[in-house]
């Protein structure tokens, strides 16, 4: 966190367009980015795994095959949810918003761990 802040100040003080280029070529940031990518990738794997999220049982999701259609297609998530936290709540316990939903309460019933849910949220948020 602190590292990113310093980098931004540097970029700003450089006050050039090249500043942003400098950002991506910084090895620390590149590593950070790679990690961020892989969290999304892990979230995707958890979401698609039949023994884990199995979200495709009910939702069409880009990159997934043979989706079910009990739930709506998961698209444009940033427009549908005001924050990651709100999205996380939907996944943690969908019965809060709709007591009759057939979506399983992944957190409340411990179908996924908290860490797995965090990763799934990161992935779904990209959709």
């Amino acid at each position: 966190m602190r590292k990113a802040a310093t980098l931004i100040t540097t970029a700003v003080s450089a006050a050039t367009l090249l500043g942003s280029l400098a950002l991506t070529s910084d090895p620390a940031v590149a590593a950070e980015k790679k990690k961020a990518l892989s969290v999304v990738e892990q979230g995707k794997q958890i979401a698609f795994n039949r023994k884990k999220g199995n979200c495709l049982a009910c939702h069409q999701i880009a990159g997934g095959t043979l989706p079910g259609n009990i739930g709506p297609p998961l698209v444009a998530m940033k427009q549908r949810f005001p924050s990651k936290q709100a999205l996380r709540e939907q996944i943690w316990d969908a019965t809060k918003r709709n007591p009759n939903t057939s979506m399983p309460p992944f957190g409340r019933h411990k179908i996924l761990t908290e860490d797995e849910i965090d990763k799934v949220v990161e992935f779904i948020w990209t959709l």
Binding site: I70, P104, P105, I111
Partner: peptide, 20 residues
């Protein structure tokens, strides 16, 4: 654990697909 009733699948969702 998945919190389903018989009705969730066969009353609320017949004609829809759960996976394939």
């Amino acid at each position: 654990q998945l919190n389903f009733s018989c009705a969730d699948c066969h009353v609320a969702n017949p004609g829809r697909r759960i996976r394939a």
